[in-house]
């Protein structure tokens, strides 16, 4: 029983680490997107602002979903 709990916790930890790594990746993409949009705006090209904002919003929603996913797994693995 204890062994099964430990295995479940280990799997949960791996899933949380994976979700965290993915969030880091998404945030890095967002940083690049923000700098590119700012550079483009300063160069007088306003047309890139809308797609950049939409894509950034999607990335943010993905981050929220991954955070909720990680919290859910965390709760499950602790048996709460």
């Amino acid at each position: 029983m204890a062994n099964s709990d430990s295995s479940k916790q280990k799997k949960g930890l791996v899933a949380i680490d994976g979700a965290m790594a993915l969030i880091v990746l998404l945030v890095v993409v967002q940083i690049w997107l923000l700098s590119a949009a700012l550079e483009s705006f300063l160069a007088g090209h306003a047309e890139t602002a809308l797609p950049a904002a939409i894509f950034s919003g999607l990335l943010f929603l993905s981050c929220v979903a991954l955070t909720l996913f990680a919290s859910g797994i965390d709760r499950d693995s602790r048996g709460q």
């Binding site: 997107l33 949009a37 950034s56």
Partner: peptide
């Protein structure tokens, strides 16, 4: 990290 992501999104909205 999620808050940082929100910050980036707000930054993009500000540019928009």
């Amino acid at each position: 990290l999620t808050l940082a992501s929100l910050g980036m999104f707000v930054g993009n909205l500000w540019i928009l």
